[in-house]
Simulated assay, not measured.
Amino acid sequence: MMIGYARVSKADGSQVLDLQIDALKKAGVDENRIYHDYASSRKDSRPGLESCLKALQPGNTLVVWKLDRLGRDMKDLITMIDDLHASKINFKVLEGHGAKIDTTTANGRLIFGIFASLAEYERELIRERTYAGLAAARARGRKGGRPTKMDKATLKMAMAAMSDRNAVSSDIAKRLGMTTTTLYKYVNGDGTLKAAGDKIMNK
């Protein structure tokens, strides 16, 4: 099943979604399965994207008009595409200079793999900086580190909350003290467990 997402930067009527929605429909996306947002700055909430991510299930394909409609910057984009890859969700970009992607094809899967590698590289850099910071802190007699954000008790609350079809994942993540990306790492949009969540529950 294909699910579409469209976004424009202004809600004042000066930008419209028609071009994107027409392209998504032409690509075979049912109009009832197209989510959208009017969001400009990085701080603007994107309830349409939240609902879209919640609706996606393994084997589905997320379709966008252009790559920049999904992520607002490279780091944001790499993280989201890596999450899609980990969740076994396909990704298709319809337009863009050299940025057409379809992960149901061999070339598209190669691009997906490159994004996954970039995400892993970013995680390794963060991990190295964290370890270096902790080592420096210990050398000065201080202890540090961020507490684990997901344990069995928190995971059970997340599963129960996400199973509510009317729940908003960003609100759930905020109440649990984590990002939406972290929440979706462990739990699917319907409250079922992902591989990372299974690992915690089976400890």
Rank of each mutant, 00 (worst) to 15 (best):
residue 192 T to R: 03
residue 200 I to S: 06
residue 75 K to F: 14
residue 28 G to E: 05
residue 56 L to M: 10
residue 90 N to E: 12
residue 36 H to T: 13
residue 16 V to N: 12
residue 136 A to F: 11
residue 131 Y to H: 15
residue 179 T to S: 02
residue 38 Y to N: 11
residue 123 R to K: 10
residue 39 A to T: 01
residue 40 S to W: 14
residue 151 D to N: 11
residue 26 K to R: 13
residue 49 L to W: 11
residue 56 L to C: 09
residue 161 A to M: 05
residue 198 D to F: 14
residue 158 A to Y: 11
residue 149 K to I: 13
residue 154 T to C: 07
residue 139 A to V: 04
residue 172 I to C: 01
residue 150 M to R: 06
residue 138 R to D: 09
residue 54 K to E: 10
residue 83 D to T: 04
residue 8 V to T: 06
residue 67 L to C: 02
residue 35 Y to D: 09
residue 120 E to T: 06
residue 90 N to Y: 12
residue 36 H to I: 04
residue 89 I to S: 05
residue 170 S to M: 03
residue 13 G to R: 00
residue 69 R to D: 05
residue 48 G to S: 07
residue 79 T to H: 06
residue 123 R to F: 00
residue 79 T to D: 15
residue 36 H to Q: 14
residue 53 L to G: 10
residue 48 G to Y: 02
residue 6 A to D: 08
residue 61 T to M: 06
residue 152 K to D: 14
residue 173 A to K: 00
residue 80 M to L: 15
residue 61 T to K: 04
residue 141 G to L: 01
residue 82 D to H: 12
residue 59 G to C: 05
residue 12 D to P: 03
residue 25 K to M: 13
residue 91 F to Q: 03
residue 50 E to P: 09
residue 4 G to L: 05
residue 133 G to V: 00
residue 27 A to F: 07
residue 2 M to V: 13
residue 164 D to V: 02
residue 120 E to Q: 14
residue 178 M to G: 00
residue 133 G to E: 02
residue 173 A to V: 01
residue 31 E to T: 13
residue 91 F to E: 08
residue 50 E to Q: 14
residue 85 H to T: 14
residue 80 M to K: 11
residue 11 A to N: 10
residue 174 K to V: 01
residue 111 I to C: 08
residue 51 S to M: 14
residue 11 A to I: 09
residue 5 Y to F: 13
residue 199 K to H: 12
residue 116 A to S: 08
